[in-house]
Design a protein around this nucleic acid. Sequence first.
DNA 1: GGAATCATATTTGCATGCAAAATGCGGAAG
DNA 2: CTTCCGCATTTTGCATGCAAATATGATTCC
Lengths: 251, 251
Amino acid sequence: MSIGLEDATDALRTAVLDGAFTPGSKLREVSVSENLGVSRTLARLAMSALEHEGLLERIPNRGSRVRSFSISQIADAIEVRGELEGMAVRRAAERGLSDNACKPLRDLIAQSEELLTAGVDTEERRQAWVDINVAFHNGLIEASGNWALSIAIKQISALPLVSSTAIIFDRKNFDRSQRQLRAAHDDHIRILNAVCDGRGHRAEALMREHAFMNAQNKRTNLSDRATLDLVRDLPGGKLVSAATSQKGGAD
Amino acid sequence: MSIGLEDATDALRTAVLDGAFTPGSKLREVSVSENLGVSRTLARLAMSALEHEGLLERIPNRGSRVRSFSISQIADAIEVRGELEGMAVRRAAERGLSDNACKPLRDLIAQSEELLTAGVDTEERRQAWVDINVAFHNGLIEASGNWALSIAIKQISALPLVSSTAIIFDRKNFDRSQRQLRAAHDDHIRILNAVCDGRGHRAEALMREHAFMNAQNKRTNLSDRATLDLVRDLPGGKLVSAATSQKGGAD
DNA sequence: GGAATCATATTTGCATGCAAAATGCGGAAG
DNA sequence: CTTCCGCATTTTGCATGCAAATATGATTCC
């Protein structure tokens, strides 16, 4: 059972996003290929893919290295995401969503409501929350009916911490986390209502604010960085052991 | 003098954008490598790059083929570009541009004014117009000071006909073309004034309208498609002769 | 003692080779 | 005459190999 390009790319991306490499460290293709268990060609292709996604930067004749992002760059990117998602809900509201189209989104709201009252305090529930969050945002984006918009959002969301689903759960500040989740949930309710009522401008403004608060929360939670763990879209077991060969390691 | 990955990618991109392949046609890596004069590995890397740019689509185990875009997809993408560039000028105005920062943009306006009064009727002048247009838009984007924004705009503008600089000059409708150029130029003037006056909302609205008209003009000009030629950011001589080996050929 | 230089060792960049999957064609069966 | 199956060819996907470019380290010259 050999792994293909997709798997190699996913594994490398997961490793990079999980901080297996210290930002700025060079990625030698031999060590990458060994840690992934593939040939150098495949490792190079995977690195090339991540380079296009913006996670790695390539230095001519010097290979590629892990790109590091400043807080302000991340904030910039989240603001752009907010603008784009705001456009998406505006367009969705302007198109007019049928009741049939609104139904599944309302169901997602109900599901997260349940989760929230029960308390998002286990790994399963956190994962469920993330999944619902992804589905809700994607549903709204699809509802815009604008193909290029979903592409652009996908691109910008590939950057670390930018995705709306790159939610930070802080175990040491459980109450604060729950408050943030609750606030985000309330945002979702209002956004969906605005969209289904055809109120594009209101939906857009709410979505921008939603993204703004998302950025703010991340900034806050990142300030006591040592005590939290990052949960991302696709955690799971296909973590590569590249970290052992490099110095870094996740915090 | 062997060519590297960058050159190969540029050549292939130019070929694709110039319509050397009929939309939907498969790109066999052997023929690409032969036409580019490089190895299959390099051809594959170039194809991979263009795939990430959205110009090619990859079919699992079937290689990649030229992606075809519908008019509405292009229009969607241009609208997204307008939204992003609108955000850029809004941000630029909100930050407040110094007179020093406004000066080079005003100079570009003056240059295009000159060109316009002289008449954009030669290849050199058309190229000059395109260059000035590029510089103006890029200048505004840079002025926003938002890193992620320029990335997102660059990405979306890589799609065919989406870039603000993918200007269509129609020789058979010279007067119409000139009117369009004049209108775009007037837009630029008003946008820059709004930005330099710190009127973010006005600048944003103007930029969105600018993009909207750009899309509209492209649609109009494309309707009598047989009689026009497309001028792009980087024409010039590094056109690859891949068209001969494939069926298509530019129209 | 410090700096420049040259030789060595890595590392990248690209080309070629080989195996697996897919396509197309031909023939046989219904 | 149509349809289905199997073989040959084509094409992709991946691994390995070789040459150029760059970092490294020792040596010599100032």
